[in-house]
Amino acid sequence: MENTRSRGTPQAKEIESERAYLLRYARLQLRNPAQAEDAVQETLLAAIEGAARFSGKSSLRTWLTGILKHKVIDQLRRSAREQPLEAADDRAEAEAIDALFAGDGHWRDMPSDWGNPDAALENSRFRAAFELCLQRLPERTARAFTMREVMEMTTPEICQELQITSTHCWVLLHRARLTLRECLEITWFDGSRR
């Protein structure tokens, strides 16, 4: 998957050809498909209007992804205003995490051996299972996690965006990883596989 390496002003057609990639990126962040479409549409329009500003120093894809990040954050802010996060969800999530550990703080179940990670990553069915697990994460946890892992934002950047403390941010990221781990353990690496 080579990036387009054109120098000079990119044509609308070249920009449009990155739509599928951008949509995939947006969908990992925004669970509402209409919002993901909107963010991508706005990105493509902004890119076509501002094509002259593309310096050619980075790849076209990198430049477009930079624009998309801002559009995704705009969408996240919009949905945060529309649907405030529920304290009850937070409690339910904390309880689910507590249930993974025994009273003495050790794992309740033995985490299984996932074998060769490269083999899993190469398997498109594994990636589909992973995305399903991602969809099941509670909203705010998913937001923090995808900001960290998809957009590669730093903890301070995430804290600022979500208006939370760094401790809270680490809690959310830890929950996301534990929940995803548990979900994959059950849906992919179950006992029948190894």
Binding site: M1, A20, Y21, R24, Y25, L28, H106, W107, M110, P111, S112, D113, W114, P117, A120, L121, F126, R127, F130, E131, L134, T146, E149, V150, R177, L180, R181, L184
Partner: peptide, 24 residues
């Protein structure tokens, strides 16, 4: 050993999400 496994699992999560992002 349990936590050593979880360490690998966390690493795989990071690799998986970036793979999903970059591969289509």
């Amino acid at each position: 050993e349990r936590c050593r496994r979880v360490e690998h699992h966390f690493e795989l999560l990071r690799a998986a999400i970036r793979r999903c992002r970059d591969d289509g």
